[in-house]
């Protein structure tokens, strides 16, 4: 079994309450102040007024990331550009509002411009016309890990030749008001905002863009907390099989049985390095782990060391992204990913 594909990151964009730059992504998640996001500042131009909030966060993060990468993104043909975005709660409040409208007034009263957003994947889909992405525009949605899964699927799709550059990341809105108020556990602070990484194949020629670093993501499933230790060990072995182990672990976990078991299993993989425990956003959400990836890639000296970002869902999903910042002093040259025959064929598609 071969290990996960790696990719190179040349652009970063980050929007969340209190966070307007990638190098602040490791900061706290405050309860958002009203008006924290200003459309006119983040997205100058017209055509954004009727979009749902999550869509605006995602467009703003993608715009910043594309600008960060510069010409090597804009110079890539539209057929070779793509997006891969994770989300759990985008549109949750809208769906609830739609259902209330149908129950109380009838479907004829639904807003035509908003109706498509009943499909969560429409949030990422809005990136395609904005950035002329004709390769693909795909949404991942597994609880808690969808953001890291988007990074993983982006790397795999790049290795398979399905695109030359992918805007990969996550977007979240908070759960719907009724869902928040009916749940005994505190929902705030929920995941809100968006994070986008501009990703290219690891071995593609560097086209003038700044290289922030490299990512490789591996995932597994634990069909119950008893399995966590063995599954985690196998996943770790496959993830770091051909490079130095991470110097640090960022663990984004909730208080479920799976979360607790993962937390208990991580120290044996830390090899003396530090573990930063980051509470998962309550009410689900897959943005926080991607924020850790962005923050590690953007962090100035010291905090930019080779880090494993871990996320797990109460339902059994387990994903780990190995982040190697370009300036990591312990970085060895990464072995060149060997493409399979089929991917070579595809990679040479016009």
């Amino acid at each position: 079994m071969s290990g996960p594909a790696r990719m190179r990151v040349t652009g970063l964009g980050m929007i969340a309450p209190g966070v307007d730059r990638p190098d602040r992504a490791l900061g706290p998640r405050p309860v958002p102040a009203p008006g924290w996001f200003r459309v006119a500042d983040a997205l100058p131009g017209r055509g954004y007024r009727r979009l749902p909030a999550g869509c605006l966060y995602l467009l703003a993060a993608a715009r910043a990331a594309a600008i960060d990468t510069g010409a090597s993104f804009t110079g890539t043909p539209a057929d070779r550009r793509a997006a891969m975005v994770g989300t759990n709660n985008a549109g949750a409040a809208l769906i609830e509002e739609f259902d209330r409208t149908i129950i109380d007034l009838g479907a004829a009263e639904l807003s035509p411009a908003h109706v498509p957003y009943m499909a969560m994947s429409m949030f990422a889909a809005r990136l395609a016309p904005e950035h002329r992405l004709r390769g693909f525009d795909l949404t991942t949605n597994s609880p808690a890990v969808a953001g890291l899964d988007a990074l993983q699927s982006a790397a795999r799709a790049l290795a398979a030749g399905r695109a030359s550059v992918v805007l990969a990341g996550a977007v979240e809105e908070p759960p719907s008001p009724a869902q928040r108020s009916s749940t005994p556990t505190a929902f705030a602070p929920a995941d809100i905002g968006a994070a986008i990484l501009v990703c290219e194949p690891e071995d593609a020629p560097v086209d003038g863009a700044t290289v922030h670093g490299y990512c490789a993501t591996h995932s597994a499933f634990v069909p119950g907390p008893d399995h966590v230790r063995t599954v985690l060990a196998a996943l770790w072995r496959e993830l770091v099989h051909d490079g130095p182990p991470p110097r640090h672990i960022d663990a984004v976990l909730d208080d479920s049985a799976i979360g607790a078991a993962v937390a208990a299993g991580l120290p044996e993989h830390a090899r003396g390095g530090g573990i930063t425990a980051v509470p998962a956003a309550s009410g689900g959400g897959c943005l926080t782990p991607v924020r850790r990836v962005v923050g590690r890639l953007a962090a100035p000296d010291g905090r930019g060391e080779r880090t494993a970002v871990v996320a797990a869902s109460a339902h059994g999903h387990l994903s780990v992204t190995l982040v190697t910042p370009a300036g990591d002093p312990g970085r060895r040259p990464l072995p060149v990913h060997t493409p399979t025959t089929s991917t070579t064929t595809k990679g040479h598609r016009p």
Binding site: R50, S111, P112, A113, H114, V115, P116
Partner: peptide
């Protein structure tokens, strides 16, 4: 067309 429809509504 959806935006047009929205405005007509």
């Amino acid at each position: 067309s959806l935006t047009t429809m929205e405005l007509v509504v």
